[in-house]
Design a protein around this nucleic acid. Structure first.
Length: 108
DNA sequence: AAGTTGACGACGA
DNA sequence: CTCGTCGCCAACT
């Protein structure tokens, strides 16, 4: 049982590490897009979403700073939905056009 | 082991 | 801007 958890953790480490490295350097009050991360990692944008969705380590990965290419929030945000993501970003001083759209033009 | 599922993206209409 | 399609690919049945 415990072993299983360990193995899963190790398995996640591969991509988690790469994504973590990119996401963690996002300055406060800024955001990035899935596509940007995807190109950096040489993987599909979809995979980035996939990996973040089944978020391996939400405590150490500021996934709320990741939006889609239109600056749109993820309505299916794993932790509390878009509402929660909105709140987190707002706390960092990110300006919004409306509930679901971040003010891009000044992302990472 | 094979099929389904999406925090997406690009392109056309 | 939205909507529909297709390509994408790791994770999950």
């Amino acid at each position: 049982m415990r072993l299983k958890i360990f193995l899963i953790a190790v398995g996640f480490m591969k991509l988690q590490k790469d994504i973590y490295r990119l996401i963690k350097k996002i300055p406060r009050g800024k955001v990035t897009t899935y596509g940007t991360i995807a190109r950096e990692l040489k993987i599909s944008a979809r995979s980035v979403g996939q990996i973040l969705h089944r978020n391996p380590d939400p405590a150490h990965i500021p996934c709320h700073r990741v939006v889609d290419r239109n600056g749109r929030l993820a309505e299916n945000f794993a932790f509390g939905g878009a509402r929660e993501q909105y709140r987190l970003l707002f706390n960092e001083g990110v300006k919004f056009k409306d509930f679901l759209h971040v003010d891009l033009e000044k992302y990472l």
